[in-house]
Design a protein around this nucleic acid. Structure first.
Lengths: 112, 112
DNA sequence: TTGTGTTATATCCCAAAAGATATAACGCAA
DNA sequence: TTGCGTTATATCTTTTGGGATATAACACAA
């Protein structure tokens, strides 16, 4: 018996996607690097894609998730708001709980 | 508070996908129509795509999921094995349980 | 004033996914 | 023997998503 069960969860706000796995890992990388471009590099994804993701996140969130600054010392940067950080932890717990729940449910495939 | 949580689950067997939502709805349509081509039409998807899906399902399953016949009265057809039917119900219950579980978990987003 | 490293955005190009089309094999019925 | 409606494939075309590239705006530091 070696069937595996996998899942993807995401949060929507009036049919715009707010959070998914990719967006959350991007948020974490931003938190670590303090910059969208550095976060993109560290995750091996194009700046364009990262920017579009964050644009979508910020548009569908009810409060600002990041603070973006252009120019200045270091050229600018992107940091998370407290709201953004709380989104990460909320998503992570739900996701982890979901995995555990599904692993438990998988027993229904035991005899198949 | 109108965030919605959505999910997709699927079952894999040694990194081949066995079942997902699309595959299960296809199996159901086959059960109803008795034919892969009719099932594809009823779901508005090309025969090619439907055939590839079923090919992948049967290759990654441990027992046959469908019985396919070519030629004969009506030209042939595809019917589900008992194993195939049990896969559907197992997947559906897990999926439904997952939705309920996640709706419950969504409360973690209540104050955000 | 110039250089630097960001954010922000548009445009072009390619590859991969999906769709459309064509064709063979098959077995029953007429 | 012919026609029919399937399953089973191959091939060609179209569409779409993503990557690469280019450029502007910005604000601080030197």
């Amino acid at each position: 018996m070696d069937y595996k069960i996998k899942s993807r969860i995401w949060i929507e706000n009036k049919d715009n996607v707010l959070l998914g796995e990719g967006r959350v890992t991007l948020l974490k990388a931003i938190e670590e690097t303090g910059s969208l471009s550095k976060a993109a590099k560290s995750l091996n994804l194009s700046y364009k894609k990262a920017w579009h993701l964050m644009d979508s996140v910020n548009k569908s969130a009810k409060k600002p998730v990041t603070i973006n600054s252009i120019g200045g010392k270091g050229g600018g940067g992107t940091t998370l708001t407290d709201y953004g950080k709380s989104l990460i932890t909320a998503f992570d717990t739900i996701n982890k709980n979901c995995w555990e729940f599904l692993d438990h449910q998988l027993k229904q495939f035991k005899d198949l």
